[in-house]
């Protein structure tokens, strides 16, 4: 018995296991397809007169192709998202990596970042701002799926559409969700490019870490 316990505590895995890396990149593809095709669909009836997405930024030749891509990629996003949530809860990874999020740490992170002292040597632990952004974007995606359903099925899911204030407000909510995701994407990609080993880790798996990696975050060095 004690033998197996010892084995368990010393077992190690890659920072980003293969399953997680696969889900990350499927999610990236789904999101890009959804955004580019969504812009094509948006252009057919714009919410803001001043905003048309240039054709080269959109996916599909005409609106119907944008719609086809959107209603394919939605499956990719939803199925992959369910798999990610199931994996994250079952393995405890979500809790381990994303919690706790302490306000004091967020403040400290922002102070450090403004003084260009934000540490990123250890990519196995997320700082509080990262945790907040990752949890935040997950919630935005869930809301985005709900506002998408409200636009797709305003009769069958009429309560959802009503909750968002009606059909046009549901469209607006879906647009704002898109803007939030694009905003996240820009920050996420920019920061990953600043610390390229994070990209390598998301492709190759990164350093080995202990399975029961629950040690508290070390206090930031002053």
């Amino acid at each position: 018995m004690s033998d197996s316990l010892t084995v368990k505590s010393t077992r190690r895995h890659k920072l980003h296991p293969a399953a997680l890396r696969t889900m990350h990149w499927i999610n990236a593809i789904a999101m890009i397809l959804l955004i580019g095709s969504g812009w094509k669909i948006y252009n057919d009836e714009v919410l803001f007169g001043w905003l048309h997405f240039p054709d080269w930024m959109t996916f599909g030749v005409y609106a119907q192709h944008g719609l086809q891509i959107h209603f394919f990629a939605m499956w990719l996003l939803v199925i992959n998202g369910i798999a990610y949530a199931a994996y994250g809860f079952a393995t405890g990874r979500l809790r381990r990596k994303m919690l706790p999020i302490r306000l004091s740490e967020i403040a400290a992170n922002i102070r450090d970042a403004l003084r260009f002292k934000l540490a990123h040597d250890d990519i196995t632990r997320y700082n509080a701002v990262q945790k907040m952004l990752y949890v935040g974007i997950m919630l935005v995606i869930v809301i985005q799926i709900l506002s998408g359903l409200a636009i797709w099925k305003p009769v069958q899911f009429q309560e959802l559409t009503a909750l968002l204030g009606g059909f046009q407000y549901a469209r607006l909510a879906h647009f704002i969700g898109m803007a939030a995701i694009v905003g996240f994407l820009i920050i996420h990609v920019a920061l990953a490019l600043l610390v390229p080993k994070t990209i390598i880790a998301m492709v190759a798996g990164g350093p080995d870490v202990a399975d029961d990696d629950t040690a508290p975050h070390p206090a930031p060095a002053e």
């Binding site: 669909i41 948006y42 057919d44 009836e45 609106a63 719609l67 305003p154 059909f167 469209r171």
Partner: peptide, 8 residues
């Protein structure tokens, strides 16, 4: 409500 595929 009439809802067009275009969004209006």
């Amino acid at each position: 409500r009439h809802i067009c595929v275009e969004g209006w």
